[in-house]
Amino acid sequence: MQAVSGGYNYKKITDYTTYNPVTHNSKNMSGNMNLTLKVWRQKNSQAAGKFVTYKAEGISPDMSFLEMLDVVNESLTLKGDEPIHFDHDCREGICGMCSLYINGRPHGPKKAITTCQLHMRSFSDGETITIEPWRSAAFPVVKDLATDRSAFDRIQQAGGYISVNTGGVPDANEIPIPKVIADEAFNSATCIGCGACVAACKNASAMLFVSAKVSQLGMLPQGQPERYSRVQSMVAQMDAEGFGNCTNTGACEAECPKEITLTNISRMNNDYFSAKLFREEHAHDQNGD
């Protein structure tokens, strides 16, 4: 067996005086794909943006899409140029931070995954790939491919919770919940807040995102006391943020990396209209805060 160090195919560094950064780790780096990237570059929210073309060479099909961008950024950095800025953190499809619009689709060509889970084996050698930020008035670009999605946080702050303080709550098993309900609430709760639904929608509607939280809490017994005030507060904030209306095109569901379904929107609409009927009784009746 090849003598490589502790599980990683790295060469050992034995001495810094003879160490050459260029040749050191190059052996496993390269693959055989060459790509052309058309990337949206924009210095900040005020500046005008434009597409810039880059070559991505020696890309391995095992790289993730973001690792491919890392390679491009390394070479830009070595030239003293500014690397391409994009949001990312967990790189395993759960934090919701990554957000690229790839060849006209949020999170790229594959179904039910985020950009960070997309691998280069989904592309072919020689391909040209267009990379843009989410496009929506409610998500202004902050730099290059990163946008400001704080509108989503403000919608959650408006009512995406059950008003319980720490301590003084009943034993967990005192609230039995049928497994089917618990599972369905879980499905809604898996939304990662990435914003792909908004980016996919021609109206830039945030209904899928908002309805996921409304559904999760609205299905659970713990969520009943605030069920109707919650939906009203969240929808009001959604409207205030400038998201568009829902015209049932279903693009959000098709592009959602977590497969949040349109059923959530139906549930939210039901609750919202019930709430309107009972507005007097239910709206903002939680003086307990």
């Binding site: 059950i162 709550v169 879980f186 709760a189 999760q216």
Partner: peptide
Amino acid sequence: VNIIDQCVAQGVPFAREYGGLL
């Protein structure tokens, strides 16, 4: 033990059995 109670009260959808318990 208090943590689980707190999280359930907040609406955390833990896995459940058919009888409805955790």
